[in-house]
């Protein structure tokens, strides 16, 4: 097994958890209701927990004495491998929910496959994650329905959200950072196999929510290659602030 490609692979998964967890963390105390605030914080907490498990394992694999925090806080922008979807800003609650649902649906399909990984640690992290992400997906899916099929205003807003986030969904299946060797060894998940089910599930829910499914063209890619959005640098400057300002300290 090639250590480097496994390390990279773990980051292509975990960076999504970190960045989405960070985005949700911005919302704490500012949600439309106490209940949604609690749910958002809870999802963020689960994602940060998963991030830690993945990074701890990545640090072990690499064997250079790095910690989970070195990986989380001390990389350059282009070295983060999360997809563009999860770094999109919290413009309003509809975007938070839309982003969450489009991610959760993918991530649950992904973890369901990853639990069969021949790598025992990845399989164990996936099994634990499935329980959490099933709840996240139920929460976000229910809210897509409420907002899509709620009031006239919420319907229009939610359609705008779906249209706005749609260009980012195909990158979820982009195989950048997943080596063929890892798939052959049964360690990594072949993302192309998830695409059809994903679009089927998402389309069904959007239709239930009386929302139109946008056409499948004009997709945008980049995050997995380290080419991020303009929003990303600002997200990182918050995330990395303490570690950059006070280097080499224990917290």
């Amino acid at each position: 097994m090639n250590k480097e490609s496994l390390y990279d692979y773990i980051l292509t998964i975990a960076d999504n958890c970190l960045i989405l967890g960070q985005r949700l963390g911005e919302l704490c105390g500012h949600g439309p209701s106490l209940e949604t605030d609690i749910a958002g914080t809870n999802i963020s907490l689960d994602l940060i927990g998963q991030t830690r498990s993945f990074y701890q394992y990545a640090a072990d694999i690499e064997g250079k004495g790095k910690t989970e925090d070195d990986i989380a806080f001390l990389r350059l922008e282009k070295d983060y491998k999360n997809c563009l979807l999860v770094e999109q800003p919290n413009d309003h609650f509809g975007y938070v929910i839309g982003r969450q649902y489009l991610w959760d649906t993918f991530y649950l399909l992904f973890l369901n496959e990853l639990q069969n990984s021949s790598d025992e640690t990845l399989s164990a992290i996936a099994k634990k994650g499935i329980k959490e992400v099933s709840y996240h997906r139920r929460f976000s899916g229910d809210w897509v329905k409420r907002l899509g099929d709620g009031s006239e205003e919420s319907h229009l807003k939610m359609q705008e959200v779906v249209n706005g986030l749609w260009p980012y969904v195909d990158e979820l299946f982009d195989m950048t950072g997943v080596s063929k060797e890892l798939i052959k060894q049964g360690i990594a998940v072949d993302l192309s196999k998830l695409r059809e089910t994903y679009f089927k599930q998402v389309s069904a829910l959007l239709e239930e929510a009386t929302l139109e499914v946008p056409e499948r063209k004009y997709f945008v890619y980049g995050g997995k290659k380290g080419v991020h959005s303009e929003y990303f640098g600002y997200l990182l400057s918050d995330l990395q602030y303490m570690q950059r300002t006070y280097p080499n300290m224990t917290w």
Partner: peptide, 10 residues
């Protein structure tokens, strides 16, 4: 800012 969300839920 959350009013439209609560209205939608109702």
């Amino acid at each position: 800012k959350g009013a439209w969300v609560r209205d939608a839920a109702i």
